[in-house]
Write a protein that binds this DNA or RNA. Structure first.
Length: 269
DNA sequence: TCGATCCTGTAG
DNA sequence: CTACAGGATCGA
């Protein structure tokens, strides 16, 4: 489910609904989501802490707590994080819940249980986040820096965009959409793309993410719609065998890095 | 850089 | 039954 836009929506909602609230009790229902043997320690340390602020870095959710700790949550493929009005809320895929003062709770649901949590000191947090590339929607992500870095890499464009060390927050859908918008073949090595085209790709990344942040926020406001994936009008993702909206050729699907890449060979070169 | 791995569910 | 799923890490 979540790439940068969806994670952003989750963070904003959480910030609005739960910032400043104290955590009364924490329960990890699937110890495997925490670092080895740390589940109990995390439960103990979270109890009594106040959630000060919810921030995002790439696809990572950072819940800043009183006492100088940060609960780091990564939703991976199927995770979701939200506030429920009654802490007694349960479902088969709840992996963690934080009971809040007043009876509500923050719930971490994750059907596949691939999502991860960790509790960090400021130092450990800095290290965990240091591997990430620039935030695509921040001023530091300029066309100049993007082009300069891209020219040094022989990675295929799609894998490059999905590499969190290059740009933080793009995943399988929005990487494919940005490449389509810019007319770039996902198999093409970055250092073999003309600088002018790389600039277009940079612009396409911004456009796709900005649009998706808007629609993810709207979709998230309506419960139920979020998981269905219809919040964003995709042009190529998941459209194998269908007609390309721009040139009329057939959208193809190829494997790249163990994942599916959707693209149109007609207009992506 | 590729493949296996972590998990569970759904579609064909 | 197999393939695949909006992710990331690890070892060969």
């Amino acid at each position: 489910m979540p790439e940068l836009p969806e994670v952003e929506a989750v963070c904003r909602k959480l910030q609005t609904e739960a910032a400043g609230v104290q955590i009364v009790r924490a329960r990890i229902l699937r110890p495997g989501i925490a670092p080895k043997d740390q589940a109990e320690i995390i439960e103990q340390e979270l109890a009594g802490a106040t959630l000060l602020k919810v921030e995002r870095r790439g696809k990572n959710i950072l819940m800043r707590l009183s006492g100088g700790r940060t609960l780091h949550v990564h939703l991976r493929m199927t995770g979701n994080l939200f506030v429920v009005s009654d802490h007694r809320f349960q479902s088969a895929s709840v992996r963690l819940y934080l009971e809040l003062a007043g009876g509500r709770a923050i719930v971490f649901e994750d059907q596949r249980a691939l999502g991860r949590i960790a509790l960090h000191t400021d130092e450990a947090l800095a290290e965990a986040v240091s591997v990430l590339g620039p935030e695509p929607l921040s001023p530091e992500f300029t066309a100049e820096s993007f082009v300069a870095a891209a020219r040094k890499s022989r990675q295929p464009a799609k894998l490059y965009l999905m590499d969190q060390r290059r740009v933080a927050g793009l995943g399988n859908i929005y990487a494919a959409e940005a490449l389509f918008l810019a007319g770039v073949d996902p198999r093409r090595a970055m250092n073999r793309i003309a600088p002018a085209r790389l600039r277009e790709l940079h612009g396409a990344i911004l456009e796709v993410l900005r649009q998706a942040v808007r629609s993810a926020a709207e979709a998230y406001a309506e419960p139920g719609r979020f998981a269905e994936g219809e919040s964003f009008p995709v042009a190529v993702y998941g459209r194998e065998g269908e007609v390309c909206l721009r040139c009329g050729k057939t959208v193809r699907r190829i494997p790249q890095g163990g994942r599916s890449t959707y693209f149109c060979a007609g207009c992506q070169r």
